[in-house]
Design a protein around this nucleic acid. Structure first.
Lengths: 386, 386
DNA sequence: AAACTTTGTTTGCTAGATATACAAACCTTT
DNA sequence: AAAGGTTTGTATATCTAGCAAACAAAGTTT
């Protein structure tokens, strides 16, 4: 049961968070604007704003344009009050970004890796963070937290139960990083993180219900409903790569048959391609040159993606579906077949007003997503302090 | 953006609702118990309880057992403070129940129908409600609202956009009923209502994340996540009957191919059966007699249901999947193939702790679900009054 | 220059949650 | 049975935070 008790502190905390959120989203903004938009009393707004000023989460700037009376004092979000670390651990790379509180990348580190034992990846990550901290501009709050996106199943306590493509089982990355750096650490599945990233900073701005299809070596889906990431009972939601789209179809690594990712992932694409083509990149080069076989392959993959997205739309009636991860690089060739497939199969009422988009953050979706997570946590915690 | 402003009225309203909810769920209960469980101050609880007593939503009973000191005054939920009407409009029946505030059926009316033009159904519904009102016991609040479940797409404003099996398009049932009876009216999709019904009164008690698979003439799915019904952007979520489970598979009424409900619905079952079998009931009779063909058919349908449920589990990582509507009557024959199919296909981590159950409310799922909706709305509204 | 507008603060009020004290009712121990 | 301790529930006073009204400051319009 949700035993949530309400009292004045809760009210204040939430109002303060509301004011801060408004400033973040619509800066520059006057106190009067905030009062009008939020419905809060002018005095209440003034008092909350003054606390936020003390905490250096916002700052004032010179007077704005008058609208027929006294000129307003404009308020801005202090995006440099602290910095978040966002890390994307992929199968052959580690990407690490330092972002300000608005998700702008301040420093970026990228390293290719060939083998992925935990100890090796851990030491790379540790080095990256340590050097980020050295290079980081000084600020009121410093590093506010570390977020990590991994291609695997993460439970709600932050344990990585299984990351097949990294060869990891039962890894306590959260604990290890917290012991090293003594800041809040958040571990998330790569698709979930990507969904949050796109919603906060990318193609999904202002959308309450969106699905992010991470189409890479496998397929995972990040699910945002009513503005919140939906994680399922244990944190394992969105394993739609293993949705069956063909009865007794191609066999899949997971032991089942006919899974979506056996048809529509990068692995599936390469399996269908000529054996001497070894990467998505080389296939894209061929397509760029007009190679018919490559073009047909992309068309095929687009159709397969479309079938799965049909299922997503009929299930969730979302505002938006965003396609991300590596296959999104092939947008040029796969977009049209995806759209055609949806148009032919999906219920008309569901198609109406539904937006299909491609990732805007590209390779940064996941890293920026976990960074957004960290910022979110910080903002909520910070707004609490008296 | 969620521009939710908070103030003391909101606090009080929510605390009052919390207290009432506690009493509903755990009666009998003393004021001291409530204070302890909720974390609210004893005085606060006392004052809220006294308001609830004035409103006759709860009542006191003789003192309970002492636990070493003064004996507590026990509080009970007054389930007879008012009554809700729940109506299930099916393709060949109209079921209408009057329930108390705990979902117990007080009066029940059931009528077979052969043709389903709106005017005919509407007059049946009107007559049923009118006679319910006559027969209803007297109470403080009388009829607190009317809920209707329909097999079709209902938008968030309560318009029935499309109910193919009834032959309805763009029906304003909500408006019509409100004009007739002047109480709040809620219209919901049949599967959504069933999900709510099972969660509140049936097989899904205490589950925060559950999916209700309404397997009847077609297939619809009601989705409850984090204790709330998820309706999607427009209210059209859960059309998983049109999830593609076979590429280029059987053609479906919706215009697409390979839809789940083309394989696993009652219609699909009858299409596969001998042409002189005209109903699920007669097929069940055959199976009861040990007819091998009938048994095989049920096994087949069970497998098909299992494939779709596999997709549901991998997508949502739910606590529970409940199978309801007409096909649930064949539990005896379809349960085992469903379980086997899931065991063979679904990711192991997702299977763990996942409960598969069959409807407990049987034919009442939908009617009790909309009734629960009405009660919920009433409780929330009522708690507001000063 | 006078009148009006808009912005933001000061002042006093109020609702509602909380802490403290206390009374009532009960149990346990001597 | 009397004393002492517990538990339940209420009465009283206090405090927090939002709100309304008044006002000051800084504009614009006529």
């Amino acid at each position: 049961m949700r035993t949530m008790t309400w009292n004045q502190q809760v009210v204040k905390k939430n109002n303060k968070a509301l004011v801060l959120q408004l400033i973040m989203e619509k800066e520059p903004l006057s106190r009067a604007d905030i009062a009008q938009v939020s419905g809060l009393n002018k005095t209440t707004v003034s008092s909350l704003v003054s606390e936020l000023l003390d905490e250096e989460l916002i700052y004032e700037s010179g007077p704005g344009e008058s609208s027929g009376g006294r000129r307003p004092v404009l308020l801005h979000f202090n995006k440099d009050a602290g910095y978040a670390v966002g890390i994307d651990i992929g199968v052959n790379y580690v990407l690490c970004v330092l972002t300000d509180l608005k998700g702008n990348i301040v420093i970026e580190k990228n390293q290719m890796v060939h083998r992925t034992p935990y100890s090796a990846i851990m030491s790379i990550v540790q080095n990256m963070i340590t050097s980020l901290i050295k290079e980081m501009p000084s600020s009121r709050y410093g590093i506010i937290g570390i977020g990590v996106g991994v291609p695997g199943m993460v439970n709600k306590e932050g344990s990585i139960l299984l990351a097949p493509n990294l060869g990891w089982t039962n890894i306590q990355l959260k604990e290890d990083l917290e012991n090293l750096f003594h800041v809040p650490v958040i571990i998330e599945n790569e698709a979930n993180a990507g969904a949050v990233g796109e919603q906060q900073f990318g193609a999904g701005l202002d959308n309450q219900n969106l699905l992010y299809v991470s189409a890479g070596i496998g397929i995972g889906v990040g699910i945002i409903l009513n503005n919140d990431l939906y994680q399922g009972k244990n944190g394992f939601s969105g394993e739609m790569g293993h949705m069956i789209i063909e009865l007794n179809g191609k066999s899949c690594n997971c032991g089942s048959r006919g899974c979506w990712e056996a048809y529509a992932s990068e692995n599936a694409l390469l399996a269908m391609a000529d054996p001497n083509i070894d990467s998505l990149e080389s296939l894209m080069e061929l397509a760029e040159k007009g190679d018919q076989q490559a073009l047909d392959l992309f068309k095929q993959i687009g159709q397969y993606l479309g079938y799965g997205i049909n299922n997503i739309i009929n299930t969730f009636n979302p505002e938006q579906v965003i396609i991300g991860n590596r296959l999104a690089m092939a947008q040029k060739w796969i977009e049209e077949p995806i759209r055609t497939t949806i148009a032919q199969h999906t219920l008309a009422y569901h198609q109406k007003e539904m937006q299909l988009k491609f990732s805007k953050l590209k390779k940064y979706s996941t890293a920026l997503g976990v960074s957004a997570f960290v910022v979110d946590y910080f903002i909520k915690e910070e707004a609490k302090t008296p």
